[in-house]
Simulated scan of single mutants.
Amino acid sequence: MAQRIDVKDLNIFYSDFLAVEDVSMAIEPKSVTAFIGPSGCGKSTFLRTLNRMHEVIPGARVEGTVAMEGVDLYGDDVDPVAVRRQVGMVFQRPNPFPTMSIEENVLAGVRLVNKKISKSDAADLVEESLRHANLWEEVKDRLAKPGSGLSGGQQQRLCIARAIAVRPQVLLMDEPCSALDPISTLAIEDLITELKQDYTICIVTHNMQQAARVSDRTGFFNIAGTGKPGKLIEMDDTGVMFSSPSEQATEDYISGRFG
């Protein structure tokens, strides 16, 4: 299920403004890749290019290549909706659909592409997805209740269940714990560690300890100043990045001297 992503010479634009410049990297399957760096350096912008969410913004575009198992996701014959099914996304703040029940939230994406799913298949998928999100035991007796009635940490795990219900190959997470308390954060981190057995996971985080705990590889993004493009400064195994990075700017950021 998990897929490798190769990014080569990627430039990301908002109209004529170059937001992120010349990124090349390999994202390995069945692993967690963390992106760290100061605010405004393009981490989240880069993350959104991996499932073509970036181009939803008017005037936004990319140059370069984002290939999944050798297939360019920006090829002329590639459907961006199909890309977003293969590359799921979990956002910074939990966003369950407020008028939908827990069960309906899990099935929301599936019903968009498969309106004919049977009741029994739907029930099985809901349970499977909630189990994978470590939420089933907490909500199995109230599946018909609104998803918005859950706690913040439960809502975020519900959003993860919704993302994996469509059986993607890659999961993108944009600061998934920034709005959560420490106990909920730990639950999400434990879940990420479990999910990497089946998925390729990319996570943007401002929490250095979180990046060190959950990721296998870490990429450090930085920006030279206001109006300048963000750049990938270096990327390596997480243990190397946090113990002996190659660039002084990386060491300064990780040690808290700036950012």
Rank of each mutant, 00 (worst) to 15 (best):
A133S: 15
C159R: 12
S118C: 03
K140F: 02
V126N: 09
L112F: 00
C159Q: 06
D141P: 06
G149K: 07
L112G: 01
I160T: 06
L112K: 00
S120Y: 02
L112R: 01
E128A: 14
E104R: 02
A144C: 06
Q155R: 12
V110G: 00
L135E: 13
G147F: 09
L135R: 15
V113S: 02
R157Q: 05
L107M: 11
L143E: 04
D124R: 15
S101I: 03
V126R: 05
C159E: 02
E127M: 12
S118Y: 04
S148I: 08
K119W: 02
A133C: 10
D124Y: 04
L135V: 14
A122K: 05
N105Y: 02
P146K: 15
A144H: 15
L112Y: 00
H132L: 12
K145V: 08
D121F: 02
V139A: 15
S118T: 12
K116W: 05
S151E: 07
A122Y: 03
A108E: 03
I160K: 14
R162L: 04
G152D: 06
L107D: 00
E104C: 01
Q156H: 05
A108V: 01
C159L: 04
A161M: 09
V126A: 10
A122W: 03
A108W: 00
E103A: 15
L125R: 09
V113T: 07
K145Q: 14
A163S: 06
E104W: 01
Q156I: 10
C159P: 03
D121H: 11
S148T: 10
A133L: 15
L112Q: 01
V113R: 02
W136S: 12
L135Y: 12
H132Y: 11
G152N: 10
S151A: 14
I102E: 06
D121W: 03
R131D: 14
E137G: 08
V139D: 13
K140A: 13
R142I: 08
I160H: 10
N114W: 00
D121E: 15
I164T: 08
A108D: 03
A133F: 13
S129W: 04
Q154T: 10
Q155Y: 05
E138G: 10
A122D: 07
G153Y: 04
S151R: 07
K116E: 10
